[in-house]
């Protein structure tokens, strides 16, 4: 779950810089291992496809406000493996997801108990590449309880774990998340610690976990800082994501960061590790990712239907000409 609230959380004036040039990374393939497509538009899917994003992971999170009943959870999980996956395929992008009870809503214990009961129905489904995003938000006792219960679930299912680290009291929350995972006998290489920054990265890498970085304006990492981190720590076990959601975020954060890395002299090989291959190596431990699928899905047939529905409306053409002033 990320990041933005709509009340100017730490808002800073945008800095004018160079324009983004997709040409410099043409031909590269990207994997965004954390992006909440449910809150994005079809324009975003098309822009991601055009920029080289071939596959993505949508972690289950909260919806900006707390759910009040179990059916809302069931429908949400079901949409992640259903309609949203289909929608993504219609734009040529392979959609995976992680399933879990997010930390904020773990605080509603009565509901959390019911969610724990239905999670097994979803975590074994095809294309579910992990338990996520789980972990701490306020770092309450209830959050810890359901974090631990889901670690056990992941262990039993042999699935990777995608861990959301808290905004507030981040450093200690990150350490604690790792301590608890190890305490449950989970191997560090099955755990992706997300939303890292300069203050957390060293410990995460030293302890053998995967370190994910969210490139998200104002509240998390900027991509210039990301470039510095890759220069300092190298590309091993590091991955970049957009965590794009309903807040001011950028679904092109992964390709843009790749372009900036290229501009700042990082090798193509290292760029591919942090924007593609490492994420596949980590979440591929689920046995659910086959890179060959990325090619198959690119040949889009938007007239395909999902439960009788298509993304096309009334004889629409699959792609629209964005440069035209006429919308017909």
């Amino acid at each position: 779950m990320c990041c933005s609230s709509f009340d100017g959380e730490n808002y800073q004036e945008p800095v004018k810089a160079g324009l983004w040039d997709a040409g410099s990374i043409k031909g590269m393939r990207f994997f965004d291992p954390h992006v909440h497509m449910t809150s994005r538009t079809t324009d975003d899917y098309q822009a991601m496809f055009d920029a080289g994003v071939v596959a993505l992971i949508e972690p289950a999170f909260w919806l900006g406000q707390p759910r009040t009943g179990i059916d809302s959870f069931r429908d949400y999980y079901s949409s992640l493996v259903g309609w949203e996956r289909f929608r993504s395929s219609q734009f040529g992008i392979k959609h995976y997801c992680t399933i879990g009870l997010n930390s904020r809503e773990a605080n509603n214990e009565a509901l959390a108990e019911q969610v724990m009961e239905i999670l097994p129905l979803f975590i074994y489904k095809e294309g579910v590449v992990g338990i996520g995003e789980i972990g701490f938000d306020d770092q309450t006792a209830a959050e810890e309880k359901y974090y631990r219960a889901q670690l056990e679930l992941a262990k039993e299912a042999g699935l990777p774990i995608q861990i959301h680290t808290p905004h507030r009291d981040k450093k200690r929350g990150t350490t604690r998340s790792m301590d608890i995972a190890l305490e449950h006998g989970i191997s560090a290489d099955m755990v992706i610690i997300d939303h890292n920054n300069e203050e957390t990265v060293k410990e995460v890498l030293d302890r053998g976990f995967w370190a994910a970085f969210t490139i998200y304006p104002f509240t998390k990492m900027g991509n210039e800082r990301m470039v510095d981190i890759v220069k300092e720590y190298g590309p091993d076990r590091i991955m970049v994501n957009s965590a794009a959601d309903w807040g001011i975020s950028d679904p092109l954060a992964v390709p843009k960061t790749a372009a900036l890395m290229k501009l700042r002299g990082i090798s193509n090989e290292d760029i591919q590790l942090v924007t593609y291959a490492n994420a596949i190596a980590a979440f591929g431990k689920s046995g659910q990712i086959d890179e060959a699928d990325f090619e198959v899905i690119k040949t889009v047939d938007q007239s395909v239907k999902f439960e009788g529905n298509t993304v096309l409306r009334g004889g629409q053409q699959p792609r629209i000409d964005k440069s035209s002033i006429i919308i017909s």
Binding site: F6, G8, G64, Q65, N107, D138, T140
Partner: peptide, 16 residues
Amino acid sequence: QLRCAEGIRSNIGNVL
């Protein structure tokens, strides 16, 4: 108390 703590989790400025 729990209700108040839940409200603090809100991301809506006016509510906070």
